[in-house]
Design a protein around this nucleic acid. Structure first.
Length: 374
DNA sequence: AACAGGGGCAACCGCTTGCCG
DNA sequence: TCGGCAAGCGGTTGCCCCTGT
């Protein structure tokens, strides 16, 4: 089936000739592309507008960087993919001069295989079952570069799994990580000043009676820990324990008191999707929201030891309500049981709400600030 | 030298999203 | 509010080239 935009006309398909390229470049350079469907006609091309657009974006654009991906670019792709999943366009935004198509192709042809060779699932960045059992069996596997660290993270030749966000440039917002080993958890919670840091958890956490952090026997979850130097050392952990039988939104917000931990002047809203209600603690100005989407009916999987934070891009913007009225950006964070669910982050939202970037202040691009802990 | 197989990449397809009347 | 249209986006396809036999 052809494009509806070109169904009425005879259009050429397949590879572009140098002459066609020249025509398109000439036209776009001179006139721009206010309407792609009109471009081929005006440029004298037997192509559909969509094809012209693709050719321009993926190949002819003057700001494109051609050639092989650098090691840094490769690491950036892996790290951002860990957060966003297959959102190639979003990933490409972190790589100046690269297109989504290029990133996607590079991922499929190269990175994917590397990850598999390292025993990692390229979709989830989790250990593949075979590697997981090896690690569980007796710790390290000499043939597998993935290794546990004492802090619960797994590294594989530079990349850290589960996902860890750190910002060495600012020494802030230091960790977003999967649950730490049990012996570490209380210390992390203890580190949270009652008046400032906030433990945000679902009722599983409450039932467990923090600091009795229920990891790992409850099937996992995601612990997010932010340290915001801009807020005088404010350290916040967010713990999204998934799969609990639903509780009210008020339960979710119960531990929040007055602090939210993101940064000064920011508000927080929780949305319990299953309950269809939400509570806001919106202050003024820029607000960051967390939508905790519980996968209510999802059965708990048997404990599998370390359960990693898993991320699949699925940005959610919740319209309506106080948060929306105040221009709140919503970030959907749903945690996961060992690959059964999804946690969604949107780096753009993080950037825009200053969650990880400290609200700007002359900082560089997102990746400069999101120096992942590799 | 010829052929087969695999990898990489450009382009296409079709669905989603956003805008506008 | 709805429908049409254009653009955006991710998945898939198919061609070309390289390498091994």
């Amino acid at each position: 089936m052809g494009h509806h935009c070109c169904s009425k006309q005879k259009v050429k398909r397949g590879l572009w000739s140098p002459e066609e390229d020249e025509k398109l470049v000439k036209y776009i350079t001179a006139h721009g592309h206010s309407c792609w469907s009109a471009v081929p006609k005006h440029a004298g091309l037997q192509r559909c507008g969509k094809s012209c657009r693709l050719r321009w974006i993926n190949y002819l654009r003057p700001d494109l960087k051609r050639g092989t991906f650098s090691e840094q670019e490769e690491r950036t792709i892996i790290d951002v993919h860990r957060i966003l999943g297959n959102r190639w366009a979003q990933i490409a935004k972190h790589l100046p001069g690269r297109t989504d198509n290029e990133v996607k192709n590079f991922w499929n042809s190269c990175i994917k295989k590397k990850l598999i060779a390292q025993g990692l699932d390229p979709k989830t960045h989790n250990l593949l079952p075979a590697s997981r059992s090896l690690l569980h069996g007796n710790g390290a596997n000499p043939s597998n570069p993935a290794q546990f660290h004492s802090n619960g993270a797994i590294t594989n030749g530079g990349a850290t799994t589960p996902f860890t966000i750190s910002s060495p440039t600012k020494a802030a917002y230091d960790t977003v990580t999967a649950p730490p080993p049990p012996e570490m958890a209380p210390a992390m919670y203890d580190d949270v000043p009652n008046s400032a840091g906030v433990l945000m958890g679902l009722d599983q956490v409450a039932a467990a009676g923090i600091p009795g952090y229920p990891y790992p026997d409850n099937g996992g979850g995601v612990l997010m820990s932010f340290r915001d130097q801009n807020a005088a050392g404010l350290h916040t952990s967010m713990d999204f324990m998934n799969g609990s039988s639903s509780s009210s939104s008020m339960d979710h917000a119960a531990g929040m008191t007055n602090g939210n931990g993101f940064s000064q002047g920011m508000g927080v809203a929780f949305v319990d999707v299953t309950a269809g209600m939400w509570t806001t603690a919106v202050e003024s100005g820029m607000c960051a929201g967390i939508e905790v989407g519980q996968q209510q009916q999802q059965p708990l999987l048997p404990p599998q030891g370390l359960v990693q934070g898993e991320v699949v891009g699925r940005p959610t913007v919740v319209n309506g309500g106080a948060a929306h009225d105040k221009g709140m950006d919503m970030m959907d964070v749903s945690s996961v049981y060992g690959g059964a669910g999804a946690t969604a982050f949107d780096l753009e939202l993080m950037e825009s709400c200053g969650l990880f970037c400290g609200g700007g202040g002359g900082a560089g691009n997102a990746m400069e600030q999101l120096q992942w802990d590799c």
